[in-house]
Computed example of a mutant assay.
Amino acid sequence: MWNQNQLFRSLGCGRFADLLKAVLLDRAMLVWLDADSNRASHPNENLARELMELFTLGEGNYTEKDVQEAARALTGWRVGDSGVTFNRFEHDGGLKTILGVTAAHDLASLADLLIAQRATAERLAWRICDHFLGTPVPQVAIDQLAKILRELDLHIGKAVAQVVRSERFFSNDVVGQRFRSPVSLVVGGIRELGLHEDTSGKAAVSPQLAASWMEAMGQHLFHPPGVAGWQGGKSWLGSQSMIQRAAFAKSLSEGELTGGNEEHPTAIQLASGQSQLD
């Protein structure tokens, strides 16, 4: 999972094509979606279904037959202790018809086919708008960004730059309308107080302790509930999570997290309603 996190960091702001193809060969993703059971003699549809439903096209833009044929294209990849390898004897090299295109599709050609679909650009645009502009996002904004994405060869970083430079991004309808995740709250709070590293005689909060607080608030680092990640939004503000957020602010303000006696009274503000918003 740490390697997958590094993959997202290194490729997440570049061309979506590079990210998608890397994710399709990511060990954590393939383990989670039972890639080892996907072979020519018995195709497993898990990866193919998530690939179309979550990562590219979205529901309503493909058929069950497309999923079945895509599963055949993804056969042959094995996951071992040393990484991901390809076994050509377990790959289905026959003709497959996916989204109306017939060819001897494999992982690379399937990815290229999905990337070329208008629905993929539209779903990426929705994802970006949903994250940076809040909900509900006007359809016109999604359509505009989808057009820009297609012009930019689905370059995520350049598309995000368009969004964060827009007037809407700075409007009252968007600013302060997203709920902070546990990672944002904990890491942000620690960094704001300069307690993320040993400096100027201040003791740092250990990463392990910080991670335990995030887990108590509902975000277990490197252990998402599924390939779609955490639900986010208001789901972060359950009663138990809010209790833990307040307890974290209190412990941080009283210096308990660094094992010292130095207090940081301003940290108690992390428990306020306003501090729950990005």
Rank of each mutant, 00 (worst) to 15 (best):
Q219L: 13
D130I: 00
L270I: 07
H155N: 15
V175K: 15
F86L: 07
G201L: 02
A159W: 01
L257N: 01
D153E: 15
I98A: 12
E151H: 12
F179S: 07
I142P: 01
G157Q: 04
I142R: 08
D81F: 11
Q244T: 05
L24K: 01
R49Y: 02
G273R: 08
G80V: 02
L110F: 13
Q4W: 04
L99T: 08
V175H: 01
E122P: 00
Q244A: 14
D26H: 02
D18W: 08
W32R: 09
M214K: 09
K250A: 12
R72E: 13
H196C: 05
A271K: 05
D106H: 12
D130W: 05
W236H: 11
A161G: 10
E122Y: 02
A40L: 09
T85Y: 00
R118F: 04
E192H: 10
V186W: 05
F89Y: 14
W213R: 02
L124F: 00
T258F: 01
A210Y: 09
D18F: 07
E263C: 04
T102Q: 15
D92M: 12
I243V: 14
H196K: 01
H42E: 09
A211Q: 11
A103D: 15
D278I: 14
A228R: 15
L185R: 07
R191C: 06
V205T: 07
L20A: 03
K21M: 10
S275Y: 12
G229H: 10
A121R: 07
L195Q: 01
A211M: 13
V79K: 00
A28K: 02
A249I: 08
S235T: 15
G226I: 07
S200E: 13
Q68W: 12
E45V: 07
R123W: 00
S272E: 07
S37A: 09
